[in-house]
Design a protein around this nucleic acid. Structure first.
Length: 452
DNA sequence: AGCACA
C-alpha cells in the first residue's frame, strides 16, 4: 500500500517545486553543466551534483517556481530531450522545495575544534593560553595554530567528540579571560566550529603547534626563548624546564625595584630562599629562589607579564633558571640569602605560605589559603568557584594602588553558568589576579622618579 | 532511470 502510493507519487502527481530532480546524468556532471542546462528558463541559484549511489543524479534550484515550471513544460512537449554531453537527462519536480546541502565539517561533531580567535590582538594569544583555556574540558592532545583570511585560528584536538562538544558549547562566542592575557592585549573572542580533522599532525613543539601526547617530540628552534633554557617538560605541557629558581627581567623600570620590592612581590607565593639581582644588557634581572619548583611555577604563572606598579611600570618577564641553588656570597642591596637566620628581613615577610596577609584589610575570602598551597600537581589545587564566571571583588578596583591593573576579571566575559567542575585545572585562583591578592604594601609605593 | 554521503 505504501509502495503503491509512493509509486504514484513519482509519475504525475509530483507537485511543482522550484527544485528539479535530474537523473541519468553523465558521470562527473558539473555544476556548470547544470546551470547551463537551466539557464534558458531562469536563474539557477543552487545545484547539487553527483547524487545517489550511482552519482548520476542531481538537483537544480531556480529562484522562482515559474522558471522550474517553464523548464518542465518545455521538455514535456519538446521533441529534443534535455541533454548533457549528448546524454538524455530526465527531469521532474523534486519532492523538496529547496536544496539542502550536506552538513559541512563544521556541523559534524568531531574531536577536533576549529577555533577562530577574534580581536585586534588575536595573534598575540599564545598557544599556552589556548591550552589552558581548552584543558578545562579535558585532556588536550594537540594544538596547531595558523593564520588565514579568517584570521588567527587554531585546531584543538581532544580525545573524543563529546569532550570537544562540551568545550565548544561552553566557549563558543566567549572571550578569553583578561587575566590570561597580558596588559596590552585587547579582548579576544573565540568562535568555534568542528573541524573535519580527527588527528592533527604536529612535527615539532613550537610556538605554532604542540603535541601534548608526545613530550619527546623535537622542539623547533622557533619555540625556544630565553637563551636556550627551554626544554620540553616530562608532562609534555611545558616547553621550559621548570625550576625552583625564577629568572625575572624587569621592563620599563620607571621606579626603583629593590631587593625588598622583589621579596614582597614574590613571597606572596611562598617563602623565598634567595634573591640575586644583576644587570644584564642594561636591564635589571633577578634570580629568585623558592624552596620548591611548584611554588616557582605558581609564581611564574601568576606574575608573568604583569607590572609591579600600576600604569605599566616595571613589567615582569619570568622564565625558569637553570640554577637550583643560588650562591649568595654576601648579603647586600643586590643579593640576599633569607635562609640565614641572622638576616632580619625574613621576619618582614608580608605573607607566608598559605596565609596571605592583607595589609589594607582588603577581604581575601575569595582567595583563601588553600589556593596558595603548593601542591605536587597544579591540577590538584582546590578551586571551588572562582574562575571565569566569578565576578571580581569590588576591592580590586577600589584599592588605592593596584599593583596589577589588568588582573581582575571583567564580569560577563565568561558564562556564569560554567560548571565549577569544568574549571581549567591549571587555572587556580591562586595563580591569578594578583592585583586582588596582594596587600597594598607601602614598600611597593614608588617614592622616586614619579612621573605624576 | 525514479529524490539527497559517496
Amino acid at each position: 500500500m505504501a509502495s503503491v502510493s509512493s509509486q504514484q507519487q513519482f509519475r504525475y502527481t509530483q507537485p511543482p517545486s522550484k527544485v528539479l530532480h535530474l537523473r541519468n546524468l553523465p558521470w562527473e556532471c558539473t555544476e556548470e553543466e547544470l546551470i547551463e542546462l537551466g539557464k534558458p528558463f531562469g536563474k539557477v541559484v543552487n545545484t547539487k551534483c553527483n547524487v545517489g549511489s550511482n552519482r548520476n543524479q542531481a538537483f537544480i534550484e531556480f529562484t522562482d517556481l515559474n522558471q522550474a515550471i517553464a523548464m518542465i513544460s518545455y521538455y514535456a512537449s519538446s521533441s529534443e530531450p534535455a541533454q548533457v554531453r549528448g546524454k538524455t537527462v530526465y527531469l521532474q519536480y523534486s519532492n523538496r522545495q529547496e536544496i539542502v546541502h550536506n552538513k559541512t565539517a563544521a556541523d559534524v561533531a568531531g574531536n577536533v575544534l576549529l577555533v577562530t580567535i577574534e580581536g585586534e590582538d588575536a595573534r598575540l594569544v599564545s598557544i599556552d593560553v589556548l591550552h589552558l583555556v581548552f584543558s578545562a574540558f579535558g585532556f588536550v592532545h594537540k594544538i596547531t595554530t595558523f593564520e588565514k583570511t579568517a584570521g588567527f585560528q587554531a585546531l584543538v584536538q581532544f580525545s573524543d567528540a563529546e569532550t570537544a562538544t562540551s568545550a565548544k558549547d561552553a566557549l563558543d562566542g566567549r572571550s578569553i579571560p583578561r587575566y590570561l592575557l597580558s596588559e596590552q592585549v585587547g579582548p579576544c573572542t573565540l568562535k568555534i566550529t568542528y573541524s573535519g580533522h580527527t588527528d592533527l599532525t604536529v612535527k615539532f613543539q613550537s610556538h605554532r603547534s604542540r603535541d601534548y601526547t608526545n613530550p619527546y617530540l623535537p622542539v623547533a628552534q622557533s619555540a625556544i626563548e630565553g637563551g636556550g633554557q627551554v626544554m620540553v617538560g616530562l608532562d609534555g605541557k611545558r616547553l621550559e624546564a621548570e625550576s625552583n629558581v625564577l629568572l625575572a627581567s624587569i621592563e620599563n623600570m620607571q621606579y626603583a625595584v629593590t631587593l625588598d620590592v622583589l621579596h614582597t612581590v614574590f613571597s606572596t607565593f611562598g617563602p623565598i630562599q634567595k634573591i640575586a639581582m644583576f644587570d644584564k644588557n642594561g636591564a635589571l634581572q633577578a634570580l629568585i629562589q623558592y624552596p620548591d619548583t611548584q611554588t616557582a611555577v605558581v609564581a611564574k604563572e601568576a606574575l608573568e607579564g604583569h607590572c609591579i606598579y600600576d600604569g605599566g611600570f616595571c613589567k615582569l618577564h619570568l622564565s625558569y633558571s637553570r640554577h637550583t641553588d643560588l650562591s649568595i656570597k654576601v648579603n647586600n642591596d643586590r643579593s640576599r640569602d633569607y635562609t640565614i637566620p641572622i638576616t632580619p628581613v625574613v621576619n618582614l615577610q608580608p605573607s607566608i605560605l598559605g596565609q596571605p596577609v592583607s595589609m589594607t584589610g582588603a577581604p581575601a575570602q575569595q582567595y583563601n589559603g588553600s589556593q596558595y598551597t603548593p601542591v605536587s600537581d597544579p591540577a590538584m589545587i582546590p578551586q571551588p568557584q572562582a574562575g571565569w564566571g566569578t565576578a571580581p571583588p569590588a576591592v580590586a578596583q577600589s584599592m588605592p594602588m593596584q599593583m596589577y591593573n589588568n588582573t581582575y576579571m571583567p564580569p560577563g566575559n565568561m558564562p556564569p553558568q560554567m560548571p565549577p567542575g569544568n574549571m581549567p585545572p591549571q587555572m587556580p585562583p591562586g595563580n591569578m589576579p594578583p592585583g586582588m591578592q596582594f596587600p597594598n604594601h607601602s614598600m611597593l609605593q614608588p617614592t622616586s622618579t614619579l612621573p605624576a
